[in-house]
Simulated scan of single mutants.
Amino acid sequence: MRRHYRVEGLDESALADEPMAQFDQWFAEAVKSGLDEPNAMVVSTADAEGRPSVRTVLLKGYDRRGFVFYTNHGSRKGAELDANPQVALLFPWHPLARQVIVRGLAARVGRDETAAYFRSRPHGSQLGAWASEQSRPIGSRGELEQRYADLAARYPEDEDVPVPPFWGGYRITPASVEFWQGRENRLHDRLLYEDGAGGWTVRRLQP
Rank of each mutant, 00 (worst) to 15 (best):
V43H: 02
G61P: 06
P52R: 05
T201Q: 15
A79W: 03
D11R: 15
P95K: 07
G50E: 01
R204Q: 09
S75L: 05
I138K: 13
D17I: 02
Y148P: 01
R76I: 01
S140A: 14
S75T: 07
T45I: 00
P92R: 03
G74E: 15
L127S: 03
R203W: 01
Q126P: 07
A79C: 11
T114P: 10
A149T: 09
L144V: 13
W167H: 10
Y170P: 06
P92M: 02
D11P: 00
V7H: 13
T56N: 06
S125D: 10
S75Y: 09
A28W: 05
E143T: 14
D82Y: 02
V87F: 03
T56A: 12
Q99H: 10
V7K: 13
N72G: 01
E80K: 10
E12H: 11
D112F: 10
L105H: 12
Q181L: 07
G142H: 12
L59T: 07
G168M: 05
L205P: 09
R65S: 15
W200E: 07
V43N: 02
R141T: 10
V42M: 05
G124E: 04
F69V: 01
Y70P: 02
P52M: 05
A28T: 13
I101C: 04
A16D: 12
P19G: 04
D82H: 12
G128A: 14
A79L: 14
R51M: 09
L59C: 10
G182V: 08
N39M: 01
R98E: 01
A107P: 03
A21W: 08
M41W: 09
V7A: 14
H123G: 00
L105M: 12
R103E: 12
G182C: 08
I138G: 09
P95T: 07
A97R: 07
V177A: 10
A153R: 15
G124I: 00
V177N: 11
A28Q: 14
E194D: 11
T71P: 02
A21M: 12
I138Q: 15
S75R: 07
V31L: 11
N39K: 04
M1N: 06
Q146H: 13
A40M: 05
V109F: 11
F69S: 00
